[in-house]
Computed example of a mutant assay.
Amino acid sequence: MDPTTNPLASYLPLAVVLLLAGVLALVIVQLASMLGPRRPSSIKSTAFEAGSESSGPARQRFAVKFYVVALLFIVFDVEAVFLYPWAVNFQALGWFGYVEMLVFAATLVVGLIYIWKKGALEWEH
């Protein structure tokens, strides 16, 4: 088949790979369920937490500060993701790229100052 006559012909190899990946995933799951060990016991059914006995219920409430710290980590991690490609292309971007990154970094610094003043970085209140 000529790719000029059928525009979908170039996607055939991708479709074959996706189909093979799906079939392989199903085969692996099926083999694991058929060949895997099946001897349930009360000890195997208990919750295991890093070698320690479980303490407390599974539906325990956590303080909001855990989530705030996680969100702050994500925000500043995303900053690092944007900083690397900018540094690689720094010379090609010129002054416009430099000013863009200054605005981006200034926005993050303002956010950092705000959360610092709000006390989000203090662990104990």
Results as ranks from 00 to 15, higher is better:
Leu83Thr: 14
Ala92Arg: 15
Ile115Asn: 07
Gly94Met: 03
Gly22Phe: 06
Leu24Met: 12
Ser41Thr: 08
Ala80Phe: 13
Lys117Tyr: 09
Ala15Glu: 13
Ile115Pro: 01
Val27His: 03
Gly119Ser: 07
His125Arg: 13
Pro37Ala: 05
Tyr67Cys: 07
Phe48Met: 03
Leu31Asp: 00
Ala9Phe: 06
Val64Met: 15
Ala9Ser: 10
Leu8Cys: 06
Gly56Arg: 04
Leu18Asp: 02
Phe66Ala: 09
Met1Gln: 06
Pro40Gly: 00
Lys117His: 06
Ile115Ser: 07
Ala120Cys: 13
Val69Asp: 08
Ser55Val: 15
Val75His: 05
Lys118Asp: 06
Ser54Glu: 15
Val78Tyr: 05
Ala92Asn: 15
Leu71Gln: 03
Ser42Pro: 01
Leu19Ile: 05
Leu24Gly: 12
Val68Asp: 08
Val17Ala: 12
Ala32Val: 11
Leu108Val: 06
Gly111Met: 04
Val81Asn: 12
Leu24Ala: 14
Ala105Gln: 11
Leu35Ser: 00
Val99Met: 01
Trp95Tyr: 14
Lys118Ser: 08
Leu31Glu: 01
Val110Ile: 15
Glu124Tyr: 12
Phe48Cys: 02
Leu31Trp: 00
Gly22Thr: 07
Leu112Tyr: 09
Asp2Lys: 06
Leu71Pro: 01
Ala105His: 08
Ala15Pro: 04
Tyr84Pro: 02
Tyr114Ser: 09
Thr107His: 08
Asn89Gly: 09
Gly56Ser: 05
Tyr84His: 11
Glu79Thr: 01
Leu19Phe: 11
Lys44Gly: 03
Glu49Lys: 03
Leu26Glu: 04
Asp77Val: 12
Gly51Trp: 00
Lys65Cys: 13
Gly22Arg: 09
Phe82Ser: 08
Gln60Ser: 01
Gln30Trp: 08
Pro13Phe: 07
Ser52Val: 08
Val103Phe: 06
Phe96Met: 12
Thr4Gly: 04
Tyr84Trp: 13
Val29His: 01
Pro7Asn: 03
Ala63His: 11
Leu31Asn: 00
Ala15Phe: 05
Glu49His: 02
Ala58Asp: 09
Leu35Glu: 00
Phe48Trp: 01
